[in-house]
């Protein structure tokens, strides 16, 4: 564990807490893409298959449980909670996220470390996570007013993978056999997708105006 990875995990955890806070405090999920939340639940379920078989550390196991349970809780909330579900922008959240799932699956079948169920699922989860934010970014462009918590949620979600890239650079130079090109490339794509969001987020913060993404 190095400081970059710990910072990345904490930023990721914080983004989930901000989203839970927004939904719980405002009893609303307006501006949140259910499709992105479903993709994230799928990412965690396919990545943490080893949750019950391999014990790496208490921290690792606890964090996996937190990510899986929070993503499922958010999807349940947006689909079934009597109050929250009515605030979901169903007609705005129209990204065809099944194409992202299919594309990631094809990529995982083509490019993986080893052709085993677990490694293909792991590669699938890495590729899917890289594009899972797309429905959310499209929804932000459509929904005119982005409330602060939603903006902060997306910001921390983008920042966490940037910390992971620093972690991979650090591990590359400190550990001999550490070379993971799959998460490298996917992580760069993922963080790149946030580039324009980070730019407009910075502008809104600098000019102290509401965050608005150009359509």
């Amino acid at each position: 564990m190095n400081v970059f990875r710990f910072a990345g995990d904490m930023t990721h955890l914080f983004s989930v807490l901000v989203l839970l806070l927004k939904i719980y405090a405002t009893k609303s999920c307006s501006g949140i893409s259910l499709k992105t939340q479903e993709l994230y639940a799928l990412v965690f379920l396919t990545r943490y298959l080893d949750l019950l078989t391999d014990f790496i550390s208490l921290y690792n196991t606890v964090m996996k449980l937190v990510f899986i349970s929070s993503s499922l809780a958010i999807v349940w909330c947006m689909r079934a909670h009597p109050v929250v579900r009515r605030t979901y922008d169903k007609d705005q959240d129209t990204f065809r996220h099944y194409t992202l799932v299919a594309g990631s699956l094809v990529l995982a079948l083509l490019f993986h470390d080893r052709f085993t169920i677990r490694e293909v699922c792991w590669a699938f989860s890495i590729y899917l996570e890289a594009v899972a934010i797309l429905p959310q970014l499209v929804l932000l462009q459509r929904s005119r007013n982005v409330d602060n918590l939603t903006g902060q949620y997306v910001f921390f979600l983008g920042a966490y993978r940037a910390f992971y890239i620093l972690n991979w650079i650090y591990r590359y130079f400190t550990e001999q056999h550490f070379s993971r090109w799959i998460p490298w490339i996917a992580g760069l794509v993922q963080t790149g997708l946030y580039a324009d969001f980070f730019y407009y987020y910075y502008l809104s913060w600098k000019n102290n105006v509401k965050l608005q993404l150009p359509a």
């Binding site: 990545r47 964090m63 990510f67 080893r114 792991w122």
Partner: peptide, 10 residues
């Protein structure tokens, strides 16, 4: 044998 690529990251 092929060492298990343990994914120790989240």
């Amino acid at each position: 044998e092929v060492e298990e690529t343990a994914h120790d990251e989240l």
